[in-house]
């Protein structure tokens, strides 16, 4: 059978979500952000909630989300996505509201907003992409940078004696009563991508059931910031990031799938 015969509408098993505008992603080649951006729309498409979902993108690599999504997206100030989501969800409680944030946004300037929104148990989904660096501004050290990791502002590696310890904000959120689902996933292999998609689905389903805040961390590479190739950075992430940020569910309320 010729390849041209196989490429036929009736044999189609996978295509990128129709809720993406078709604009090329502005992320660096091989960046896990693109995978997460795509997965969110796949979940929204599967749940058929595209007319009821509102995304909030703050500052960072997530900033141009509105260019890629055929849904409503609000651009929030740096770190304030969960505060904007709180207001939005309270005014429009029937809408699905999610925030898409990086670690420089959620775990640094937005720590207060994040912790208090999760503690209040706002019925929103927080998607947190953690690459251990400020990717957009040139790979500076972030609160999540792991010990010994070289960045443009810690060229000899992060020294915990002078620069402090990395912040595991997902663990903090898991300890809050308002959070109903807290998980840490990755997108470096096809199996990990499938698990992340399931986690995102659960996080959106929880909004329908009004359970509280769902928090999905995705550990991701930033090879431009880490000065590696995409494949090298995925390997480095497995060897160095995962021991510090172990994957898996941190909190699952009874009755969740």
């Amino acid at each position: 059978m010729e390849v041209q015969e196989i490429i036929n509408e009736k044999n189609l098993v996978y295509q990128p979500s129709k809720l993406l505008t078709g604009a090329a992603f502005n992320f660096c080649p091989g960046c896990g952000h693109g995978t997460v951006v795509r997965l969110v729309m796949e979940v929204v498409e599967e749940m058929d909630i595209q007319s009821d979902v509102i995304g909030i993108s703050p500052v960072g690599c997530s900033v141009l989300l509105y260019d890629f999504y055929n849904i409503d997206v609000i651009q929030a100030a740096h770190g304030r996505a969960t505060a904007v989501a709180t207001g939005l969800k309270r005014v429009l409680p029937d809408k699905f509201v999610f925030t898409y944030q990086g670690d420089g946004d959620l775990a640094a300037i937005g720590t207060g907003e994040t912790i208090h929104a999760c503690n209040r148990g706002e019925n929103i989904t927080v998607i947190y992409v953690n690459n251990g660096t400020y990717g957009m501004t040139g790979g500076q050290m972030a609160p999540t940078t792991i010990p010994g990791m070289k960045t443009s502002t810690s060229p000899r590696g992060r020294d915990v004696a002078t620069m402090g310890h990395p912040l595991r904000i997902t663990d903090i959120v898991a300890s809050l009563d308002g959070a109903c689902y807290v998980t840490r996933q990755a997108v470096h292999t096809p199996a990990a991508v499938r698990k992340t998609k399931r986690a995102l689905r659960t996080a959106f389903e929880n909004q329908k059931l009004k359970r509280g805040t769902s928090f999905v961390e995705v550990v991701c590479s930033c090879h431009s910031g880490w000065k590696m190739t995409p494949l090298q950075s995925n390997r480095w992430m497995e060897e160095n990031m995962f021991p510090y940020y172990p994957l898996g569910d941190l909190k699952v309320m009874n009755g969740q799938t």
Partner: peptide, 14 residues
């Protein structure tokens, strides 16, 4: 297709 960060791949199977 599911690992592609840019959503550039469509897959057909028969």
């Amino acid at each position: 297709a599911i690992i592609c960060p840019d959503g550039a791949i469509s897959v057909y199977r028969v």
